[in-house]
Design a protein around this nucleic acid. Structure first.
Length: 423
RNA sequence: GGAGAGAUGGCAGAGUGGUCGAAUGCGGCGGUCUUGAAAACCGUUGUACCCGCGAGGGUACCGGGGGUUCGAAUCCCUCUCUCUCCGCCA
């Protein structure tokens, strides 16, 4: 949520920059402005009346003490009238506040200056590319390999739960565990603190990171307890900092967490969602950083380097793209995607998304730091990224490293898997 | 699941209808003293919004929501959470 004050102080700028996200904010901003003028006026009136009531109440108290009962009763009558007026004003005020909030929630985050124009993924900007040559190898796609080596069973998952819930078996299961450990260890080395958060969150947390109220359909909802299965560890981890005021010198706060991720997303059908490409449950290691506003873009680059290091160590061909306005998420100011090339599918698979949300999330979370100089509380910047999501990494490993002897395991993973090949 | 107790500022903890945004202690910050530090002493120390160029003033907040009252941290209702005991259990 864009902070109200910032929005009103930078109206034209916000409207201009939201156009990069193909969002026309002019009407909403106008409404917010009008309602805010009314809100201020209403609050001033309400506060004045409340002050009067408080004053009279004090007087009544001392009148009673002095035994001047008649005078006190007189005053009481007047307060009845006052209270009616106050009640009316307070209703108006809370209505206005609610209306402003509802409008504010509609506005996507302001994209960073460097965000390229564009409609969709085809307009994203390739920042750099790395790893061994990215070419199709005419190999088997991972869903065939999974069956060949009996390491991932999609049909069995269908039977137990439904589509999008595969069963990993034998070396396939071990490979999952290996990747999770590898990713966590790498994050630890890079200075992130490990946490293992709850996998169900309450409504407040869903609201804090922006899944609620409008993206409710993307999460699995446990109705009896009104809890939500986490769509990413970002939700529980970022909410550690809900309603928190940090000292300036405590920034940055760097966290990493593994969690299974549950996503209902209906999505499209066909090749894009085959096999491991899109699942309802998958595993991911996430990195989350709370940073000083002055340093958040430096931090974003650091996080990107960390993620890049992971795909490099896994020997996968990759590229980094900066998302264009049209392809960015609602709450992001700048996002890099890291994609690995799948040789058998002959396409790029998104394995990580690293974003700076600036103060958009922090505003909802009420996550602030105390400025050392001014002693004022300012909103922090929040950033996060996948480091990494497992399924597409597994897909790429299977497809890119298939040999006649079996699937070759990248060197860095061997200490974790305990085997060199999946045969 | 059954029975009981409780939720107050960064923490501990007092406050059972007006003098309470809230005693006191600890912690934090500033200062005096000291070569420096500690101790001691003095001062200061919540958040948000509104009015004001500013100085300053106002309002709200004692787990959440609602009610009684001229007036609520304090009384009533309700929800959530925590603790203790019993039961069950990885």
């Amino acid at each position: 949520m864009i902070p109200l004050k910032y929005l009103l102080d930078h109206k034209e700028e916000v409207i201009q920059r939201l156009k990069v996200k193909h969002f026309d904010a002019s009407e909403i901003v106008k409404q917010i402005e009008e309602k805010n003028v009314l809100r201020k006026k209403t609050q001033a009136e309400t506060d004045a009346k409340l002050a009067e009531l408080n004053q009279i109440s004090k007087e009544i108290g001392s009148l009673f003490k002095q035994g001047e009962k008649a005078k006190a009763e007189e005053q009481k009558k007047y307060t009845l009238e006052l209270k009616d007026q106050i009640q009316e004003l307070q209703h108006q005020l809370s209505d206005l506040e609610k209306q402003i909030d509802e409008l504010l929630v509609f506005l996507p985050n302001i994209p960073h200056n460097s965000v390229p124009e564009g409609k969709g993924s085809e307009d994203n900007l390739v920042v750099r590319q790395g790893g061994v040559t990215a070419e199709p190898n005419n190999g088997l796609p991972h869903w065939d390999l999974a069956r060949k080596y009996d390491i991932i069973d999609f049909e069995l998952g269908n039977k137990i739960t439904g589509s999008g819930f595969p069963v990993y078996k034998g070396k396939g299961a071990k490979l999952q565990r290996a990747l999770i450990s590898f990713f966590l260890d790498e994050a630890l080395k890079a200075g992130y603190n490990e946490v293992l958060p709850p996998f169900l969150v309450n409504e407040d947390s869903g609201f804090g990171t922006g899944q609620l109220p409008d993206k409710e359909g993307q999460m699995y909802h446990v109705q009896t307890d009104n809890l939500f299965l986490v769509p990413t560890a970002e939700v529980p981890v970022t909410n550690i900092f809900r309603d928190v005021i940090l000292n300036e010198e405590d920034l940055p706060q760097k966290y990493t967490a593994y969690s299974p991720c549950f996503r209902r997303e209906a999505g499209s059908y066909g090749k894009d969602v085959r096999g491991l490409n899109r699942l309802h449950q998958f595993d991911k290691v996430e990195i989350v950083v709370i940073e000083h506003p002055h340093r958040s873009y430096e931090q974003l680059e650091q996080m990107l380097l960390h993620v890049e290091g992971l795909v490099q160590k896994l020997e996968l061909p990759y590229r980094i793209v900066k998302l264009c306005g049209g392809d960015m998420s609602f709450s992001s100011a700048l996002t890099y995607d890291v994609e690995v090339f799948s040789m058998a599918q002959n396409k790029w698979l998104e394995v990580s998304s690293v974003s700076n949300f600036e103060n958009f999330q922090a505003n909802r979370l009420k996550l602030r730091y105390r400025d050392k100089e001014t002693k004022k509380n300012n909103l922090c910047h929040t950033l996060n990224g996948s480091a990494l999501a497992l399924p597409r990494i597994v897909a790429a490993i299977l497809e890119n490293f298939q040999t006649e002897e079996g699937i070759r395991i990248p060197d860095v993973l061997k200490p974790y898997t305990g085997f060199d090949y999946i045969k």
